[in-house]
């Protein structure tokens, strides 16, 4: 039997349930994702995974349609695994198992699929997460753009109360580093605006950083961390609005404290974008009580993904439900959700 080789392309038969599909699963997914649960190849992954007392099971899903498939700082595979890990991590869970469904356009190079699979496998390995079940479908050329991925994830969370309801005026807002890199890296990789920039996506798994501050909370008996969210589509502006929206507190951020890399700022000036509205894939917004903010900030800065952590603002009494920014010249402006078009297919 001929092995799949570099010049080969994915055909409809690779999703047809026959020999080709089985070979693809064996050579690519079983080989790269190797773990005892996946190896069973049963219709469902059977995992011994019962939450103990005071623990909860966390469950999430997301689909990835990013264009292009490869970009500086990552690819659709890395994005899919990191994205699902981060959705679990920000609710305080430790991600354990992930499912992976691929929808492939007929004609995709086998080599491309291999690289993406390897990239998914690497993150899963590094993060001690198992990809335990999956699915492959192939559609006719033109019915889909190259490759879409859906992942779902299961994680375990020890008892912790993270809720918007616990937020009160005086709480601080921390972000773990500079914003706007993912969205601009994708845009630059597409070449649409004829601009080239040395900007890499910040795509990264946040479990370690977040577990660090959660464990700190347990060991030091701090009750400071109130809420966390990853500012992906819609950027920091959307996330802050989601937090403040409908609540009786407001949020005040300081423009001068928000970390933005020079390259990102320059590209935004050029293209007329606002970094506050650009997607991130390796950032987390943490709301923490005023008295514990410095301790949490210090702990975050000890993590490789948190070195640039900053307190960017605080929770205020009024105006309720709104996000206001003090600008660099000390004027103030309202930060609303993005109005109008978002950049399509950035994740």
């Amino acid at each position: 039997m001929k092995k799949n080789s570099g010049s080969q392309r994915i055909s409809l038969a690779h999703g047809g349930g026959g020999k080709l599909m089985h070979r693809l699963i064996k050579e690519l997914f079983q080989e790269k994702f190797a773990n005892e649960i996946l190896n069973e190849l049963s219709d469902s992954a059977v995992v011994e995974f019962l939450p103990k007392n005071n623990s909860s099971l966390c469950f999430t899903t997301d689909s990835y349609v990013v264009n292009p498939l490869f970009f500086p700082g990552g690819d659709i595979g890395k994005l899919a695994i990191c994205g699902t890990i981060n959705d679990l991590a920000v609710v305080g869970a430790k991600p354990r198992y992930i499912s992976c469904a691929l929808i492939i356009e007929e004609g995709l190079e086998y080599e491309v699929l291999k690289r993406i699979t390897e990239s998914m496998a690497k993150i899963a390995r590094d993060e001690d997460v198992k990809i335990v079940t999956g699915d492959t479908k192939v559609v006719e050329k033109g019915n889909l753009d190259k490759l879409f991925i859906n992942t779902a994830g299961l994680g375990l969370r020890k008892k912790i109360n993270l809720s918007k309801e616990t937020i009160i005026p005086g709480d601080k807002i921390i972000v773990n580093g500079s914003i706007g890199e993912h969205g601009l890296a994708i845009l630059a990789a597409r070449g649409e605006f004829n601009f080239q920039a040395k900007i890499s996506s910040d795509c990264a798994p946040l479990t370690n950083l977040i577990q660090r501050i959660i464990n700190l909370r347990r060991s030091a008996a701090l009750c400071g961390i109130k809420f966390m969210r990853d500012p992906t589509r819609g950027g920091l502006a959307a996330t802050l609005n989601e937090i403040a929206g409908g609540m009786n507190f407001g949020i005040l951020i300081n423009e001068k404290d928000i970390p933005v890399k020079k390259e990102v700022r320059a590209a935004c000036e050029l293209l007329g974008f606002d970094p506050l509205y650009i997607a991130n894939e390796g950032k987390v917004v943490v709301i923490v009580s005023g008295k514990d903010a410095e301790v949490v900030l210090k702990a975050m800065r000890q993590d490789p993904l948190g070195k640039e952590s900053r307190i960017i603002g605080e929770v205020t009494k009024a105006p309720g439900g709104k996000v206001i920014m003090k600008t660099k010249i000390r004027g103030s402006r309202i930060i609303d959700m993005l109005v109008g078009d978002q950049l399509p297919r950035i994740c």
Partner: peptide, 9 residues
Amino acid sequence: IAQSGLRDL
């Protein structure tokens, strides 16, 4: 003017 909140000044 709007972005920088300049009218506040």
